[in-house]
Design a protein around this nucleic acid. Sequence first.
DNA 1: ACAATAGTGTCTATGAGACATTATTGC
DNA 2: GCAATAATGTCTCATAGACACTATTGT
Lengths: 259, 259
Amino acid sequence: MTKLPLTDKALAAMETEEEFLKHYDLKKYPAQALTADLCIFTIIKGELSILLILRGGHPEKGKWALPGGFVNVDESVDQTAARELKEETGLAFEDGYLEQLKTYAYPGRDPRGYVTSVAYVTLAPKISVPKAGDDAAEAQFFPVKELNSLTLAFDHANIIEDGLERVRAKIEYAPIAPLFIPDETFTISELRKVYETVWGVSLNRSNFRRKVQAVPDFLIPIDRKRVSNFDGGRPGDLYRIGSAQFIYPPLRRSKEELD
Amino acid sequence: MTKLPLTDKALAAMETEEEFLKHYDLKKYPAQALTADLCIFTIIKGELSILLILRGGHPEKGKWALPGGFVNVDESVDQTAARELKEETGLAFEDGYLEQLKTYAYPGRDPRGYVTSVAYVTLAPKISVPKAGDDAAEAQFFPVKELNSLTLAFDHANIIEDGLERVRAKIEYAPIAPLFIPDETFTISELRKVYETVWGVSLNRSNFRRKVQAVPDFLIPIDRKRVSNFDGGRPGDLYRIGSAQFIYPPLRRSKEELD
DNA sequence: ACAATAGTGTCTATGAGACATTATTGC
DNA sequence: GCAATAATGTCTCATAGACACTATTGT
């Protein structure tokens, strides 16, 4: 299959699409690459945390980076993200939450060339122990509060900032906060602590309860109670997540949190 | 500059980043291309409309497509979007609204190869007359209600659907609805008609007024009135947009609109 | 009994929907 | 005057914040 050096105009004017494609070669454009990078959030010891990989090879060797990798030509970028999630955490994306965040594409963000990054956000339901991958010397969850003391690779500090805001906004109206909880069942207090941790505020106990219970099919009561609290106190009623697609009315942060 | 056929592992293990980059060639991966495509919304004769381009060349010759183009290696995809906006509408993106929507990347969406599309959403403040571009035989605004009778190129029908939902959701809490209005100054009724058009509902006049006026720095009163209504009626007070970054509390659609 | 946490109820302020009344224009 | 549209006010209900009170556990 020979590729003749035709101008774009001559190409586009071709009679049939077959003829056009025979002479078209994407490689005439500068090389580009596409990656999927993941913000994998979880809550560890009451701290909102994110999974980072210590880069063992160039570029950005020795810096902490978001897990991710190049998109294969036979897969969608969504599939790349799901594959990387599985590789890094062993977590299969089934009914979880894996949402595209934003795409970062500008000259100079990667020394290898024009590398475009499609960022994703996901919530890790279980505190899975990440294992080291191919070019990942080490993998570790970091509390987001401590990230300013780390040297992050590429523009990943910006991506994490955007990812954080997405999660904080999304749990207002999407029933994804229970994904932070390891168990299938949970108490309303446990759910409230998720919101408090992600938003970094404290919420009124009874008002929170009233609001989440008012959402149809959000929380399904289970006929059991938490067996025991560590230090005394009445055990809470257990719930599991229902079929609701939206939290309406949304659980809004106060005006001060927005800005 | 010779490129030796080194494995990824051998490459990443290089001592210095300079050495690494000397042997690294992005072209070893399959060719990919990056485009920016625009959902340019405006309101024409009370109809929410979107700008489409009739493709004059292959691929998808003869189908209507979103305006857009390839990203140059010396520019960001945001810059590409702004450049295309200028080229297609003559509209300079200054203080307007041009927001990244979503990235579409999967095999088979473009016959030329793995072409990734980063979609953007913008609101055209003036009903600018689009001119034909390089490979655009014709450019025209279509009411979004009539799109199902058109044959759209690539996966642009999906992109438009996503763009519509973004605009409908965004005007709830972002003060961008006035961008649909050609004038610098406008009445509250004119603003209400924007919401009614975009959401496809009718809104109570006095309640809408009460809510928008309650948002600090959203609408700044001007000491003038609309000179004349076409057909009689009291002229409305004029406002201009203020410095508010958010509409809080948001102007929510009813639960039924959400789905 | 006491500490600790969960569940329930209540008072009040704010926001939203429905709708009536008054005001200002063109004809 | 009349039609048309804008501005204002008011009644009612839903939602949200604050907080008191009761219930159930471990120690």
